[in-house]
């Protein structure tokens, strides 16, 4: 392939709304034999990933650009999902990230495994995979990713400052962002029963493993006070700030904040964290 592949796919980078031609360099991989490009918008996602579409739609999906690349006898696929917000892009990334061999390789929120590289940057979620899993193919994943990511303005997502607390900071790589039932089912099954009757919420959830035990810290925003009250009522929780509440065989602690915001923990949390969450 001699010519640079200039694909006139106008992607809106982050929030800047500047149209940019999306370019895949012809030398991004050696021995490229073919590149096929497809574009699916909100209504077309069903045709592309069938039942998997619902999860993206729940987070807020706008468009996906798909590159099918053949190079050196190996199939590569790069999916660039333009989501409705940086949070939505990070949300998909956060529930997809798993057993990363390496993280923060190209951008702060990325994850490399033998068969796949995923990342969130600005409004975009990237999934680049290969059919081989070989070390060579892994290098090629990074090459494709590098080429695609460099074309997007660096609008990294701002995670809630709650999680900057020194005890929580080291666990940021496990932070998940969830905005509905499917996200909860796919990303944090543990709390699926807790949220199964809730709608119109967003939740940042962090598992914290410490000294051989584990607890969970979440920042949950409800759309209105009625939704928040319903959530507490359905789960047998009371508005007792900072006190342990035993429901079934689990211990929860609630810290009610302004604007229909809740800090919720599960498990036994250290006293210093309790103080911090109370004051937050």
């Amino acid at each position: 392939m001699k010519n640079t592949l200039i694909l006139f796919l106008f992607l809106f980078a982050g929030n800047c709304f500047a149209q940019q031609p999306f370019v895949l360099r012809d030398d991004v991989l050696p021995d490229i034999t073919s590149v096929n490009t497809r574009l699916f918008d909100k209504d077309g996602l069903w045709g592309y990933i069938n039942g998997g579409a619902d999860l993206y739609l729940e987070y807020g999906f706008e468009q996906v650009t798909v590159f099918d690349i053949k190079a050196g006898g190996i199939d590569y696929k790069a999916d660039v999902y333009r989501m409705a917000s940086p949070e939505a892009a990070f949300g998909i990334f956060s529930i997809s990230r798993f057993k990363c061999q390496e993280s923060a390789r190209i951008t702060p929120d990325d994850c490399l495994t033998p068969y796949q590289y995923i990342a969130a940057k600005g409004n975009f979620y990237f999934s680049i995979s290969n059919s081989s899993g070989s070390p060579e193919a892994q290098v090629h994943l990074l090459a494709i990713a590098g080429n695609l990511l460099e074309q997007i303005e660096n609008l990294s997502i701002e995670k809630p400052s709650l999680f900057n607390y020194e005890m929580l900071g080291p666990h940021l790589s496990g932070l998940k962002y969830i905005s509905g039932q499917l996200g909860m089912q796919n990303g944090f099954v543990r709390w699926e029963p807790l949220f199964q009757q809730s709608k119109n919420y967003t939740a940042w959830i962090m598992p914290v493993k410490q000294d051989g035990s584990i607890f969970y810290v979440a920042l949950v925003d409800f759309s209105d006070s009625a939704d928040m009250e319903t959530f507490m009522q359905k789960n047998g929780l009371t508005a007792s700030n900072g006190l342990n509440q035993v429901v079934g065989n689990k211990i929860y602690t609630l810290f009610i904040k302004q604007n229909n915001r809740l800090v919720l923990t599960e498990g036994v949390i250290p006293e210093s964290l309790r103080d911090y969450l109370e004051k937050f």
Binding site: N50, S96, F98, K99, T113, P114, Y115, G133, N186
Partner: peptide, 12 residues
């Protein structure tokens, strides 16, 4: 075991 029904390589 995760990522289904699509094919997400890290979960195969």
């Amino acid at each position: 075991y995760q990522g289904g029904p699509g094919a997400n390589p890290q979960y195969i």
